[in-house]
Every structure is written in C-alpha cells, then in structure tokens.
Simulated scan of single mutants.
Amino acid sequence: MEINKPPLRMVCPGRVFRIDEVDATHSPMFHQIEGLVVDKGVTMRELRETLEIFAAEMFGSETKIRFRPHHFPFTEPSAEVDISCFVCGGKGCSVCKGEGWIEILGCGMVHPNVLKGCGIDPDIYAGFAFGMGVDRIVMAKYGIRDLRYLFENNIRFLEQF
C-alpha cells in the first residue's frame, strides 16, 4: 500500500565517525548537515543550482564550485562537490594540496530503490540529497588553515570568534 506523502524538504544535523587520516582538512570525527528534497520533477540541475546558491551565500559570490563523479550507495548519479580554495583563490597551496580546490560535500539524486523503500513512487517523485561537514564549512568561511585547530582547545585561537 502506497502512503500519500507530501513533498519533503529538510535539513538534519548529525555527528559522523569514519576511518580517515587526520590532516589539515580531514578528521575521523566531524559534524555534518544533510539536506533532502523529494518532490515531483526534481532534477540534478536543481541540485546544482541549490549548491551554487549555497556556495555564493556562504563563501562569497567569487566562489566557484565543481562536481566530480563519485559513488554513494543511496544516490545515483552521485558527485563530490569542491569549492575554489579560500586561501589561494584556486592557484594552489598547502591547504588545497596544490590543486586549487577543497572538497566540501557529497551529493546526488536519491536512488529510486530508496524512494520505493519509503513507500514513494519513483515514477512520480524524485529527489536529491547532500551532506556537508560543518567543520569544513567553518574552515572555509573563516579562513582557518588547519581543521585540527578546532579541536585543540587553544583559548587564544577560540577567542578570535
């Protein structure tokens, strides 16, 4: 029996743990914001436009984004999204490891099997989802060059904010 469900638009915070080497932009523990939109006619174009608006509002209108194909188990197609480096402006530095880009989030179109599993007809509805680390957003927003500073309890560093 299919349940009549209204369009879904939500953002949820959460804490994430994963196996990851600690460096200037990675940590095995971080906080994440996840977004989900499910409605009739939702497309990858809307996902890209949503993330372009987010990047411009959060990091400034000069910020560029790029999508790179990736695999996430609950979305297809899926992508990782990078922003132009906030330190060097995309020229290459130690923070962006010389690439000019910093990975900021993962995203994709909700897989039809996920919709079916929720009692939503994928022939009528589609959706997109994204997840981004709050710590990495704070880094980019305030020009923090090393993620580890956020966890070291250095009063001089923390009093800047």
Results as ranks from 00 to 15, higher is better:
T43Y: 13
L150Q: 12
C88R: 05
R145E: 15
E52G: 04
A24H: 09
V134F: 13
K64M: 10
I53R: 09
E62F: 06
T50A: 15
C12M: 12
C118L: 15
V134W: 00
M58A: 15
D39I: 00
D121V: 12
L51E: 01
M1Q: 09
G100N: 04
D39L: 09
T50S: 15
C85W: 05
P13N: 08
Y142H: 15
P13D: 13
R18I: 09
V22P: 01
E103H: 01
T75M: 06
V16R: 15
V110S: 03
Q160K: 15
E76G: 04
I19C: 02
D23M: 10
D121A: 10
M132D: 02
L36S: 05
R66G: 06
F30G: 00
G41Q: 11
V38T: 08
R145G: 14
L105F: 08
E57Q: 14
L36V: 15
A129R: 04
F86R: 04
L105Y: 04
S84M: 08
R9D: 14
L51T: 01
G108T: 06
E21Q: 14
L47S: 05
V37G: 02
L51D: 01
I3E: 11
G100R: 11
P122L: 11
S94W: 10
E52H: 04
E34P: 04
D23K: 07
R66C: 07
F128R: 02
V42L: 10
A140Q: 06
E46M: 15
F72Q: 07
F161M: 07
D82I: 02
M1T: 10
C93N: 11
L47D: 03
F151C: 02
T75V: 15
L158N: 04
T50Q: 09
L147A: 02
F72I: 06
T50V: 10
G108H: 07
K141A: 13
C12H: 14
V37E: 12
Y142S: 08
H71W: 14
K40M: 12
G60H: 07
F161S: 09
I19P: 00
E21W: 00
R48E: 15
G117A: 13
F17P: 00
D39S: 09
D123W: 02
E49M: 13
S84K: 03
R148V: 06
R18E: 05
G106P: 01
M139E: 04
I19A: 08
G131T: 03
G35Y: 07
H71L: 12
S94K: 14
A129P: 03
